[in-house]
Design a protein around this nucleic acid. Structure first.
Lengths: 232, 232
DNA sequence: GCCTGTGAAGGATTTCACAGCC
DNA sequence: GGCTGTGAAATCCTTCACAGGC
């Protein structure tokens, strides 16, 4: 056992899981790789190959049991438990993240938020209290926080990231518009709508100029958005 | 001429451009692929190869001229002009997007926002007025909107996406937690922090269980966040 | 000496195509 | 007949390594 699993495969699993949850909610009990693939713009072969890294979940002639496969994927991804999250930076963006109701139902608990602004410290955003950034390290270690969310200005992002890593956080979601780097034993993902737009304009530009001339590079068609992603 | 350019390459260009802008702002005038790569966690060979799709921008023995390469990348990506954006859905998320100040300085003008809620129509978020969703099609065609941002509930995302595509929008940034699909002549990117977290937990789980047993699949180390989609 | 640009090599990922089973 | 699971083939992407130029 113990095959090497490509990261691209891991990134697609939550997408499959989400689609299965939707099917499940609407009462579907079986789905084929064909049908699932059409909904997600992925080839059926890719879905089957991806799943085959982890086991044999389907039935020939029928397809996959929806709740069954959903459960397996949740188990594989570690979504059958809850994870501790903290947010660093409570500006507009950080506030929106803390107030966004989408993390809790998916198993991610935002335990606390941190900021350097004295005026904010001690207040709350929703249920989450804002603490002084100087307490970050101690809190992370005491609470065994799993995921750190970075929502500070670009200029502070690497420093905050280093602090999170220093305190043993193993996964970071970076909303700051800069590339923070981490040691190889830590996972980091970047969310940046501007970068997404800036790569799309390349294709918009192609199309524009194609109307006028036959110049410019030819371009392959994209699939499965972003990162991504990659985004993405 | 006219080589096929991989999408992964296009997705990295904005990352390079952003790093160059930062270097430029701090007064640097030249940079080598080595140094740029260290800052971004990308191999120097990859940077050189990526750039080589578009031309020869460096000087042997020295590296790249920072403002020069930055300008070239902006030109390649179409960032030397402004783009028209509209936002569909003005809930909490849509509001945060419209109020976020980061798009304007990068050349993206949010012209309008649309919502189905009668109570919101006619009001403003910052400088942007909220219009009735029924006016979407007419507005898009009249204003030649380039990019549509989807910030509606998952259940409405595909319908809104189809409307955008139907009115000729060629690029879509989807914030809804669902996979909307588009015809191949349209580009779409998805932004979903929950999916990003859900793929990171896979690695967190690995680490946890690795401490207890030698079981579970071995995993390859990731690089360059997101996008992954990015995804991003 | 240092660094780019790039063919060629090596690896990774996707797709094909079909045996096997329901 | 329909569909999975999977080796093999094909494609795509990254890395190597070095010629060429500053």
């Amino acid at each position: 056992m113990s095959l090497e699993i490509p990261e691209v495969v891991i990134n697609r699993l939550p997408v499959y899981a989400r689609a299965l949850a939707t099917l499940h909610a609407s009462g579907e009990t079986v789905v084929s790789s064909q049908v699932l693939g059409e909904a997600l713009d992925v080839t059926p072969a890719q879905i089957r190959k991806d799943l085959s890294y982890f086991g044999r979940f389907g039935k020939q002639g029928r397809g996959y049991n929806v709740p069954g496969l959903l459960g397996k994927l949740q188990e594989i991804l570690g979504l059958d438990r809850r994870w501790k999250v903290c947010v660093v930076g409570v500006g507009r963006l950080g506030q929106a993240i803390v107030e966004y109701g989408g993390f809790g139902p998916q198993g991610f608990d935002i335990l606390a938020a941190f900021d350097a602004d004295e005026a904010k410290v001690g207040t709350c955003v929703g249920e989450v209290s804002i603490r002084d950034i100087s307490e970050l390290q101690a809190f992370l270690e005491e609470e065994h926080v799993d995921i750190g969310v970075v929502a500070v200005p670009a200029s502070a992002a690497q420093m905050v990231t280093d602090e999170l890593v220093g305190a043993g956080v193993k996964a970071i979601l970076n909303y700051a518009p800069t590339t923070a780097t981490v040691p190889s034993h830590v996972v980091i993902r970047h969310i940046d709508p501007v970068l997404e737009m800036q790569s799309m304009t390349f294709y918009l530009k192609q199309r524009d100029s194609a109307a006028l001339s036959a110049e410019g590079p030819i371009v392959r068609a994209p699939a499965l958005g972003g990162r991504r992603t990659a985004s993405g």
